[in-house]
């Protein structure tokens, strides 16, 4: 695969995951269990949206067809989105939101740390900025996983149920396809084997503190990076893209 095309594709994967998860997290705003969490979750959503803006903006420049971050975010349909399936899953209860966030944050923090050493200066710069945010999010979500897991019987059961539900969506985070292989060879993207090992150490450490059981790894869901999404993404995009679609050509 041509390197430029591969980088575009890779940036879409990273950017779309941030955009879609940021959207999900932002749905909590004003409805969280505590005022502190309204603020914390809004902050996570804000950081992820900011990362999406940078990653999609860079993707658009790499593509070189005159699109910008907003055109990529607001004017593509679901089948052109490249986010992880995990990110589009509905919020569910607070345990689901936190567990989904924790699994993602632990991955993103490791991935960004590796990408900060990318041979592609543009990507390395975005990752270097993002890694601090990802670590901060990980501390927040990790602490909550521990609190819920080792809180009450109810919170433990809810956290375990969330973990069991989302576990099959974690395999996708470490897939290495032709796009990744091309970029790994060029030193642009990292080898995912050590990233996965580090992610697993973080997960095991937090789950042990939380007295939660790591689910057995069976069949892993896949398809996000090929545009094969679940049914919920279309509804998310219908909401997110409403204004630019309803008023074509308008500037906001």
């Amino acid at each position: 695969m041509e390197r430029r095309a591969a980088l575009f594709e890779y940036l879409l994967r990273l950017g779309d995951s941030c955009l879609v998860l940021g959207h999900r997290v932002s749905e909590w705003c004003g409805h969280a269990p505590e005022l502190e969490e309204d603020i914390a979750l809004a902050n996570v959503a804000l950081d992820l949206t900011g990362q999406a803006d940078m990653l999609l903006g860079y993707a658009a420049r790499i593509e070189g067809k005159g699109r910008d971050a907003d055109a990529l975010a607001f004017l593509r349909d679901a089948w052109d989105f490249r986010n992880l399936l995990l990110c589009e899953r509905a919020n569910g209860d607070f345990a689901h939101t936190i567990v989904r966030q924790f699994l993602f944050d632990a991955w993103q923090a490791e991935l960004y740390a590796a990408l900060a050493r990318s041979t592609d200066a543009g990507l390395a710069g975005i990752a270097a900025k993002g890694v601090k945010e990802a670590q901060y999010h990980l501390r927040h979500s990790g602490e909550w996983v521990v609190r819920l897991g080792d809180g009450t019987d109810e919170s433990h059961a809810r956290a375990q149920a969330a973990l069991d539900e989302f576990w099959p969506f974690t395999g996708e985070m470490f897939e290495t396809d032709a796009v990744a292989t091309e970029l790994i060879a060029a030193g642009i993207a990292p080898d995912m084997t050590p990233v996965e090992a580090a992610w697993m150490r973080t997960v095991d450490d937090v789950l042990a503190q939380a007295t939660l059981a790591r689910p057995k790894s069976g069949w892993m869901q896949t398809g996000g990076s090929k545009g094969r999404h679940g049914e919920e993404l279309g509804h998310l995009l219908a909401t997110m893209q409403f204004l630019p679609r309803a008023y074509p050509g308008a500037k906001w």
Binding site: H23, S26, E27, D53, L56, F74, T239, M240, L243, A250
Partner: peptide, 10 residues
Amino acid sequence: ITRAPSLRRK
């Protein structure tokens, strides 16, 4: 928030 028309506005 979920319907803001640009990333900047969001």
